[in-house]
Amino acid sequence: MSNSERSPELLQTAMLEAVQQLVAVVAQLRSPTDGCPWDLAQTPESLTPYVIEEAYETVDAIQSGDTKAICEELGDLLLQVVLQAQIASEAKQFNLTDVAQGISEKLIRRHPHVFGDVNVETVDDVHRNWEQIKAIEKGEDPTIAPPLSKKLSRYTRSLPPLMAGMKISRKAAEAGFEWEAIDGVWAKFQEELAEFKEAIAETDKAHQEAELGDLLFTVINLARWYDLDPSAALQGTNQRFIQRLEQMEAVADRPLSDYSLEQLEKLWQQAKARLRGEAGEAD
């Protein structure tokens, strides 16, 4: 019997059994007596890169529309949740039950129009109620807007740098931190580029990174002014680079490291032209 033919009750039972099996498998992997050495060596901190990686791979699968890949990547992401909960449980901090109960209670609390008697008419109403309830949960006055700096600092903690930069740029602009015209943004770009070049001529790495950050943030502001997504732009460039590299490797008769720089440049240009001809690729 396929899942689509099962009753809701059987589906729920199967789901709970599957989750319980996953929890048991992870617990076995973390067993001090007969577990896996790699899993036993992991800490919440060491697993952090995998949480990010699996989240990105899940997004990539969703964007591809491949349902089989989406299912697999969601499983990999779920594994990271269960692993973190298992490690916390071993330290007697919390367990997966606490995680599930906590998010369920939060969803019920923040959706009084579904689980209570509050009336809403628009998505904006839902968002407004959500923010007010969240403020109350944090002990804040929902009628008083939090300082802009506090609001923006949340993005640096919860988003990848490029996405955080765009969010910060937009919110700051809404608060009045904005150029009068695009010419001002381009002038700022040239200023930051010059300062970065000066920093590179020095030996202070912290200063160099600070100036590089300023330059990147200005590029993000340029993207905002032109209504472009810097994350999507960089992702596209990464993909095009790999596609061109694949084309080069397909026609190479030896490892690319054995080619001269001039030969590699020729192969690169040929790959660009071939891909452009196939899919109208931009430079």
Results as ranks from 00 to 15, higher is better:
251 V>L: 01
180 E>Y: 12
68 K>T: 07
211 E>D: 00
185 V>W: 05
243 Q>W: 02
91 A>R: 12
197 K>V: 03
68 K>W: 04
147 P>T: 15
248 M>S: 01
67 T>Q: 14
95 N>A: 08
156 T>I: 09
165 G>F: 02
187 A>L: 01
159 L>A: 04
240 R>K: 02
1 M>C: 07
46 S>T: 15
157 R>I: 03
68 K>S: 06
11 L>G: 15
62 I>Q: 15
165 G>L: 09
90 E>A: 06
222 L>N: 00
108 I>K: 15
114 V>W: 01
219 V>S: 08
83 L>V: 07
149 S>Y: 11
146 P>R: 14
193 L>P: 03
172 A>V: 03
89 S>C: 05
220 I>M: 00
259 Y>H: 11
100 A>R: 11
173 A>F: 12
69 A>H: 01
129 N>P: 03
64 S>D: 13
17 E>N: 09
9 E>Y: 12
166 M>D: 11
282 A>G: 05
76 D>T: 06
192 E>Y: 07
250 A>E: 08
96 L>W: 12
179 W>I: 09
225 W>N: 10
23 V>G: 11
75 G>T: 04
70 I>F: 03
242 I>C: 00
283 D>H: 09
110 R>W: 04
3 N>G: 04
152 L>V: 00
82 V>L: 11
169 S>E: 09
230 P>S: 09
106 K>E: 05
279 A>F: 05
209 E>T: 02
88 A>Y: 09
7 S>P: 00
201 A>V: 00
273 A>T: 10
101 Q>R: 14
250 A>F: 10
159 L>D: 04
46 S>P: 08
255 P>W: 02
83 L>M: 15
132 Q>Y: 07
250 A>W: 01
131 E>I: 05
177 F>L: 12
224 R>N: 10
138 K>N: 06
134 K>T: 03
19 V>W: 13
13 T>S: 14
249 E>H: 04
41 A>K: 02
178 E>G: 01
240 R>L: 09
161 P>Y: 12
177 F>D: 01
168 I>F: 05
140 E>G: 02
35 G>R: 02
89 S>D: 09
